Computed example of a mutant assay.
Amino acid sequence: MRKLPLLLVLVLGGCVENHAPPFANLPYEPFSRTDAVAIATREWRLWGSRVGEAPDYTQSAAGMAERQPGLWQRVGEYWWEGMNTGEPDAAWTGKHDARGQVFPVARNGDYAWSAAFISYVMRIAGAGPAFPYAPDHATYINYAARAALGKIRDPLLIAENPAAYAPRLGDLACIGRGKARGLTFAALPTAYNFPAHCGIITGGGPGDVDIIGGNVDDAVVLEHVATDATGHLDNWLVILRVLYRAN
Results as ranks from 00 to 15, higher is better:
residue 4 L to P: 00
residue 4 L to H: 03
residue 6 L to P: 03
residue 10 L to H: 12
residue 11 V to L: 13
residue 11 V to N: 06
residue 12 L to K: 06
residue 13 G to S: 13
residue 15 C to E: 12
residue 19 H to K: 03
residue 20 A to V: 15
residue 22 P to E: 07
residue 23 F to N: 02
residue 25 N to H: 02
residue 26 L to V: 15
residue 26 L to S: 13
residue 32 S to R: 06
residue 32 S to T: 11
residue 32 S to D: 09
residue 33 R to P: 03
residue 33 R to M: 12
residue 33 R to T: 14
residue 37 V to G: 09
residue 38 A to R: 07
residue 40 A to H: 09
residue 42 R to K: 08
residue 46 L to N: 11
residue 51 V to T: 04
residue 53 E to T: 15
residue 54 A to I: 14
residue 61 A to K: 05
residue 64 M to R: 12
residue 71 L to S: 05
residue 72 W to Y: 14
residue 77 E to Q: 12
residue 79 W to M: 02
residue 80 W to T: 06
residue 82 G to I: 12
residue 84 N to G: 04
residue 84 N to P: 01
residue 86 G to P: 07
residue 87 E to S: 11
residue 88 P to H: 12
residue 89 D to S: 13
residue 92 W to L: 04
residue 94 G to F: 06
residue 94 G to H: 05
residue 96 H to L: 15
residue 96 H to S: 08
residue 98 A to C: 10
residue 100 G to E: 06
residue 103 F to E: 05
residue 104 P to D: 07
residue 107 R to F: 13
residue 112 A to G: 11
residue 112 A to N: 11
residue 113 W to P: 11
residue 116 A to N: 03
residue 117 F to R: 01
residue 118 I to Q: 03
residue 118 I to S: 00
residue 118 I to L: 12
residue 123 R to K: 15
residue 123 R to W: 09
residue 123 R to L: 13
residue 128 G to Y: 07
residue 128 G to I: 10
residue 129 P to A: 10
residue 131 F to R: 00
residue 138 A to H: 07
residue 141 I to V: 01
residue 142 N to C: 15
residue 144 A to V: 14
residue 147 A to K: 01
residue 148 A to R: 04
residue 148 A to T: 05
residue 149 L to Q: 15
residue 152 I to A: 02
residue 153 R to M: 07
residue 159 A to D: 04
residue 162 P to K: 02
residue 166 A to T: 11
residue 169 L to W: 03
residue 170 G to T: 14
residue 171 D to H: 12
residue 172 L to A: 03
residue 173 A to P: 03
residue 175 I to N: 06
residue 178 G to K: 00
residue 180 A to D: 08
residue 180 A to S: 14
residue 181 R to L: 14
residue 182 G to L: 11
residue 189 P to N: 05
residue 189 P to T: 13
residue 190 T to V: 15
residue 194 F to N: 00
residue 201 I to Q: 07
residue 203 G to R: 05
residue 203 G to M: 03
residue 207 G to E: 13
residue 209 V to S: 06
residue 210 D to K: 03
residue 215 N to P: 10
residue 224 H to Y: 06
residue 224 H to K: 12
residue 225 V to G: 04
residue 227 T to H: 05
residue 227 T to W: 07
residue 229 A to K: 11
residue 234 D to M: 13
residue 234 D to F: 02
residue 236 W to A: 01
residue 239 I to D: 01
residue 244 Y to K: 01
residue 246 A to Y: 09
residue 247 N to Y: 11
